[in-house]
Design a protein around this nucleic acid. Structure first.
Lengths: 259, 259
DNA sequence: CAGGTAAACTTGACCAAACGAGCGATGGAC
DNA sequence: GTCCATCGCTCGTTTGGTCAAGTTTACCTG
């Protein structure tokens, strides 16, 4: 495979090299999981310095096309099955069938979902969470923090916050496995009938902590989704704060036409 | 302001310098729009080489905290008023009051919205659009491409696609200004009564073209939102494909609890 | 004062090199 | 066969530049 990059081109060398490799990835000449040429090989092939090939590889990382490991090399990112999160995942019928929302949503993606509970216990409510729950900032709330995996890859980190006066009456909420249908089923078992769920969506670049938790390259985008679970009395009995790897999810919503 | 960075620290110098500057930004010692020290000044202040300060500044760019112009310097990104897109923006009452959806949504953000029409005319329908409109790929559809600005800053690039047999009966759709209430009002005037809007949300890093159009730094995240406007007969009479600067928008959705 | 030009300043692309940290294969000792 | 040390390969951090491209400031002339 000869280099087709000319020194006379107006485009910077590092972009030309990145484009070449991107083209190979897009045309499957470099398959997902396959290693791209090492820095030394690229330096020789394109006749440029180490700094220039590093900048090219950094471009590919920024574009989300490769992932790099020190001492190993750079690999084409595999494109995982995408999970669609639709409104249907909160149907009571799923819960009655023993399925928590995350089970319902990953089933159609054909991936094996697992969940790792990171912590369960009382915390002081951060400002935004307190506002949403209608409690004082710093008030005691129950936090359930967990990491979701699809086919062994971490895709989502989520923390549910529940008002203490609601949580303390439901012992399953303090267990790693809250039982069939998840915590929403347990809340319903205790008389909290849901009227609606509101979701707030933001997107940004992952923080260092998030990138580590979700095994993302620095600079990767994440979706930040915050959900209120609202009962028929208008009370918010759970706020779920979620960070998701953006390339792993598609969110679907339906908005009825109203006057 | 003395440098507090020690050579014996385990953290790489470039990250320490980036953290220092980030701390100044976060504590408003460097205000939005203000210039951070030049590369030469940072080199002298921290006693490091140009490559190291450049790497530090690149970190800040990746984190979305600064924007850099060749020949000028690096500036703290201003944090613009955030526009919330909620379900309410599609209310018929807004349209009857002469407001298109984008007017309704920017009003509460206190920003001055403007729109620049980039092109209006027939195009062959791309695959995903064709699938959504229920036409053949490549079929003739009307495309209305525009750029939205808040307070003079581009925030969103949107293309509406309408089936040709629907569009050809509505002359206003071929004009830059389709009239009060926007194209949804014109579609309703012609008997297309809306039942619902479906929205599909993705997030990713902006392409080069998108970054240029929205004046974003390379590596900035965008929200990709695709909406179907569905009539009471179940027909999709418009697909709107939108790329939004992620830091400028918050999306709100309500999901009714159903069985 | 206004306009043009040159100099100074700033970032972008690129070079060449050194050393540290991490990974995996290989070979030798037990 | 297992374990450990060594070596070669790979990327991460850093140095110390040069030249190109863009912006701003200073100076000179009309």
């Amino acid at each position: 495979m000869a280099s087709t990059v000319g020194a006379r081109s107006a485009k910077p060398m590092y972009l030309q090299i990145a484009d070449d490799i991107e083209e190979q990835i897009k045309s499957d000449r470099l398959a997902p999981g396959e290693e791209i040429p090492s820095e030394a090989a690229l330096m020789e092939r394109y006749g440029v310095s180490s700094g220039t090939v590093r900048k090219a590889v950094a471009e590919l990382r920024t574009a989300g096309l490769v992932v790099t490991y020190q001492g190993k090399g750079s690999f084409v990112k595999s494109r995982p099955p995408v999970t669609r999160k639709s409104s249907d995942r909160f149907r009571r019928s799923h819960r009655r069938a023993g399925k928590a929302a995350y089970i319902a949503e990953t089933e159609q993606a054909g991936v094996k979902p697992t969940v790792q509970v990171l912590s369960i216990g009382p915390v002081p409510a951060p400002q935004e969470i307190a506002d949403r729950l209608g409690v004082e900032e710093g008030a005691k709330v129950l936090a359930r923090r967990r990491l979701y995996f699809s086919d062994g890859t971490p895709t989502e980190e989520a923390t549910s916050y529940l008002p203490w006066d609601v949580a303390r009456d439901i012992p399953e909420l303090f267990e790693e496995n809250p039982g069939g249908g998840g915590i929403y089923a347990r809340l319903e078992d205790h008389g909290h009938e849901f009227a609606e769920y509101t979701e707030t969506i933001r997107a940004r670049i992952a923080t260092k902590q998030e990138a580590t938790a979700l095994r993302l390259s620095p600079g990767s985008p994440v979706i930040h989704l915050t959900r209120n679970a609202v009962t028929t009395t208008g009370r918010v009995v759970e706020v779920c704060d979620t960070i998701m790897a953006a390339d792993q999810f598609v969110l679907d919503y339906r908005i009825p036409a109203t006057d």
